[in-house]
């Protein structure tokens, strides 16, 4: 369900992407960030030696179109965003076909639920003598 502000933002973003394509820029990568409640996606383009960014902010469950029709090299990185951040990209299938409840959903989000209750590393067993070791032999 996208409200009007988001719709306008998506139209403006799509126009910028198309302008990049007409200018002949090269798509480098996109970075998805989790601002709690919405996602920010930063697209990086490389054009005539300069790096240019195109930003988009959408709420979590708003579907936005993929840019692979203009830039085919964006395929893998959009699918990774679908897997790791739970973004809804129209036209990008997730890599991991997870069954319900099989793993962490959208692990890169700030409030992702970790199925392992304690986040601390497991303590290794101690060896019986607790004295500092003797001076090591010369390696040479």
């Amino acid at each position: 369900m996208a409200d009007e502000a988001t719709e306008n933002a998506m139209k403006a973003w799509r126009a910028e992407i198309e302008a990049m394509h007409t200018a002949g820029a090269r798509f480098v990568v996109l970075a998805g960030l989790d601002l709690i409640g919405k996602l920010e996606v930063i697209y990086l383009f490389h054009h005539e030696g300069q790096l240019k960014e195109v930003k988009l902010q959408v709420p979590y469950d708003v579907e936005f179109p993929s840019i692979t029709d203009l830039f085919p090299s964006a395929n893998f990185v959009e699918r990774e965003m679908v897997d790791l951040l739970g973004a809804k990209v129209k036209g990008a299938a997730p890599f991991l076909e997870l069954t319900e409840g099989a793993g962490i959903v959208a692990p890169l989000r700030k409030n992702a639920v970790n199925p392992r209750p304690s986040g601390k590393p497991a303590t290794p067993p101690t060896t019986p003598p607790a004295t500092p070791p003797a001076a090591p032999k010369e390696a040479k």
């Binding site: 480098v28 970075a31 998805g32 960030l33 090299s73 893998f76």
Partner: peptide, 15 residues
């Protein structure tokens, strides 16, 4: 750090 994103070259070469 809030976010670190890495795009490695092999990720771009596999397609």
């Amino acid at each position: 750090m809030d976010r670190v994103k890495i795009r490695t070259p092999t990720f771009a070469n596999i397609p």
